[in-house]
Design a protein around this nucleic acid. Sequence first.
DNA 1: TCCAGGCCCGTTTTT
DNA 2: CGGGCCTGGA
Length: 770
Amino acid sequence: MIDKLNEPQREAVTLPAQHALVLAGAGSGKTRVLTTRMAWLIQTGQVSPLGILAVTFTNKAAREMVARVSSILPIDTRGLWIGTFHGLCNRMLRAHHRDAGLPQAFQILDTADQLAAIKRLLKANGIDDEKYPARDVQRFINGAKEDGLRPGDVEAHDSFRRRLIEIYTLYEKQCQREGVVDFPELLLRAYELLARNEPIRSHYQRRFRHVLVDEFQDTNTLQYKWLTLLAGGGASLFAVGDDDQSIYAFRGANVGNMADFERDYARGTVIRLEQNYRSFGHILDSANALISHNNGRLGKNLWTEQGEGEQIRVVEQPTDLLEAQWLVDEVRGLISDGRDRSQIAVLYRSNAQSRVIEHALFSSGIAYKVYGGLRFFERQEVKHALAYLRLMANADDDTSWMRIVNFPPRGIGARTLELLGDQARAYDTSLSSAVARVPGKGGSNLAQFATMIQRLAAETRELPLPEMVEHVIDQSGLIAHYQQDREGADRIENLKELVTAAAAFVSEANLDGLPAGVALQAPATGEFMGTEPGEGESSVASDALRVGFDGLSPLMAFLSHAALEAGDNQAQAGQDAVQLMTVHAAKGLEFDAVFITGIEEGLFPHENSILEQAGLEEERRLMYVAITRARERLYFSLAQSRMLHGQTRYAMRSRFLSEIPDEHLKWLTPKQGLSDSEPRWKSGGGSFDPYARNPKSSVVSAAPRSVTSGVTVGAQQFRVGQGVRHARFGEGTIIGLAGSGIDAQAQIQFREVGAKTLALGVAKLDIIQS
DNA sequence: TCCAGGCCCGTTTTT
DNA sequence: CGGGCCTGGA
């Protein structure tokens, strides 16, 4: 098990029971260490599988961990507490719902549901949504929760914030009444449960002897508190992470947790995994050089035994279109060299960049796959179907009610819903309970809808889950509705896919054939997890330790699953395709060949980040992540101008480029900023090839100075040698001209920012001397 | 109730 | 430029 590990890996895996921080560089075998440690702890008899808790951020990572542990050691993985923060907290809250003050069948709101709930709240309370936009309110509430703060804990500096706190209070009341819980609430509730309930806390503290955390640099304040509380009874906290790959500060991650953890818990037990098994030397050294510009790092230097490999190929193009065109040509070359398309990744800083690249790939018929976008359970029609199911399980779920009360349309308009809302508010009940008090036609339509939901629930209660789902998508009228829609075919397809998903879930969870609407009395899996051998079985234990879904119906279990795991990104599935994604989405992945595009100031680093040091350093880490995705070949590309927000913007090279030593870079276009020789530059001196000479010599000596050729664009006449002024780049001299009319381009040597190639039809230039 | 057209805005994202 | 959202008119 451990003999194939390198020295630091083995040290980490076989560390005695104590707190430890493992600084695991990119490609250094992080997951391997984590899973081997679990297997080693179990195999050496130091802990039973029941005494381990392992936390990750994504379901994918959790699944992989389970798979790898069970491949090392044949154990029953159902007994393992391996999962995401949210998944594990959900499990605890279901088991202790009474102590947590929740109905057992509480529903989980995803981000979109939460936003809808907040909008409804703002409207119901007549809150000015100009001053308090739902998005901002959501950010405020989630931010507070992620810091572990309830409304009473948030400091109210001014009246604006006081109002936000009031809204937060109202929102909590609404969620409580509806029996719903948002994502950060899952964590906060679970934390408070442990913090306030001594028997439950000490039960879990005694049970989990080893707590292991993946991607520790991404934890937020609340997650850190939850972990240290859980491990507070003498358990060992084994945290694995890489501060240089912390790229999620914008959603609450606190890199500082790593340093805090080292100081307060690990106390010098820090193991560095620095040998990289992924990339060649030039790539690693570039990454090391770049990241060394950050301050306050825990410190780490990647190395490899693989040799130098190739330099990074750098290309600068005049426009984003040409950048994409060049990329397509290069990708085509890689493919004809026999590389798998799926081993080629095109990375970008922001999603907006993908359009031009997709267009170019599409036009040239290269198969590609874009990551990101809507996932299965987030699709409109799937959410509609789930809303029916949720309402059947919990009639008080107003968010689901509002989503489908008039979908498909059944003559329930805004006026009726307003009346219904008034009644619900007046009596402080759910919308569903207020139906009887709405008079007239609207009232009877509402009653009909409410009856339909009840009828659906009654009719399907005893059916297996997949049949229940099938019945609902049919009887609700969803299928019929989309059949009338010209573009509804895909949606119907997805609704049918939901039935398949339910079937897969049921078989995975061992719930085959059970009545979907009936709470499971016996442990669903037939397993009783028990406590550590020899420990007594308190009432807490017997309540908490059943695996899975005791007390929940298969339907409820499925709904939780749908909320906690939004499913695949549904990037066009199938064949071998070039991989397109943001740098964020690429974290954790690796490819033989990687293109990092748009390496320009303002884009990467992004303009919104460069004003603050913390922001800039996160951008640098992002670049570090991007570079370390590549195994063999890495490309940097940038465009001097690109279309953004409907207008052409000019950019300078990213500062990150200059933070990487020249020896690692191989410029495919001239380093000094001349564009590609295509089209050929007019110059007075006959043939001039900017590449043929010494590409590293300064522009001034390499550029032609002749004044014999000129170009006319609109009313302006340009010629080489002319002085011009640009609004952004300042003053400069034209050193080359190409093309004619609106396609004309000029190379200009600017005094401040160096050489640029500008499209004369687009750039606004003043001629300052002839 | 529904749709069209105007308007605003524009990093990164998992659960 | 393009997408999402809201509003106003039929």
